[in-house]
Design a protein around this nucleic acid. Sequence first.
DNA 1: TCCTTGAATATGTAGCTACATAAAGCTAAT
DNA 2: ATTAGCTTTATGTAGCTACATATTCAAGGA
Lengths: 232, 232
Amino acid sequence: MSADRLSWKDVRDRIRDQILQRAYAPGDKLPRDADIAQEFGCARSTVQRAMQDLSDSGLIERKRKGGTHVRADPVTRATLDIPITRLEVEETGSVYGYQLIDRQVLPVPREIAAKLEQVEAKSMLRVQALHLADHKPHILEDRWVSIETAPEILDVDLSRESANEWLVRNKPYTRFDLRIYAIAADAQTARMLAAEPGDALLVIDRTTWVGADPITTVRSITIPGYQLLTKS
Amino acid sequence: MSADRLSWKDVRDRIRDQILQRAYAPGDKLPRDADIAQEFGCARSTVQRAMQDLSDSGLIERKRKGGTHVRADPVTRATLDIPITRLEVEETGSVYGYQLIDRQVLPVPREIAAKLEQVEAKSMLRVQALHLADHKPHILEDRWVSIETAPEILDVDLSRESANEWLVRNKPYTRFDLRIYAIAADAQTARMLAAEPGDALLVIDRTTWVGADPITTVRSITIPGYQLLTKS
DNA sequence: TCCTTGAATATGTAGCTACATAAAGCTAAT
DNA sequence: ATTAGCTTTATGTAGCTACATATTCAAGGA
């Protein structure tokens, strides 16, 4: 980037600095984009891009005609990336392993249908599997897959390829729901994860849809000590 | 928006649909922006904005000269908003309450200094407090605040205003670290949260800096059953 | 006083041009 | 062969203009 022109990131950083240094306090109104552009000697479109970025990151709020204000109640906004489990394991330098525990077509319990936002509960494919890191348990997944939306899953050899990987590669979704919580390990879960019953385990529930059609819902139970990290 | 022109969101949606419908499979190369623009009858800048958005959301990857490819290993990318605890409680329609448990200037334990990426461990302000929802415990926070970076905190009446709220309003940060994990409640924590010892609790650790200077690190322990939700 | 209506205004978006930059690929010299 | 540079090319960015859209604000009428 040439030094004689301001990039929108430069503009963003300068505005952010002004806010951090309290030139503008929470709730304060910032000048119009056009005025800032003139002050900085750049085009309004450059200021616009900078402002959009600050708005996306939660620092300011913009409204047509209302102008731009520093958010009174800033939020901490982070990005959470959940990759394919195999990649997550391999990125730490560990050897990835995978083990199918069970695979059955079963009638769908009510709470699973509710998660999928389905009224009528048909049969779905239930897959339980274990992801391993360095030959030790890492994540236990309990999954239901819609055989209406993803009938091809029935032909996949799930003892070789994980449903996680197959779905992510073959059934892109348009919408998803993520929730994260903690549970205490019951006897069976503890056994499968090589943990102690009563251990606190982080759980990640994920449900995906294409349009209004449900694809899958998974409950991923992690081993004791597992941490979710975010990118800022 | 006028119907006779394509907005960049229209373009984005059409490209996304093409990818979802497997016109382009994972790993495939998409046409150049200019060609897509011509095909759609819009400007390259419009395609550029659409592509940027798809790139941000993790569906495609772009490289100068290399072109645009559908990501071979899609990630689930979610946005996590962590508001001020008071607002989080009030948004559910509950009555917010706050209770200071302890406030002391103490030498910093090694593991806290490490979290803050500090070598020399000076004294910091330690604040323990309880956030209440409808007069019942909601989140227990255990916080260390740097009195070098935020000396004003010593003059704040933390029995009235939570350190959470004061800091977020008065000490904006430039960088933060978030980690989420599960712990089993020990006797003391259980008592303060009105939980049972051994209950699995979701914990959110957050550390913030301005530049290289640490501001604060908090461990927020939630009540049993607490769920973190994300926006897609 | 209240409500409707219309004007004013700040941000949002689309299109165009020109140039910057990174990376891939080619060429030529060693 | 191997490498050092040069060229090509697709994306990235800045500037400009024109217009769209959402709100606010003020004026006017019941």
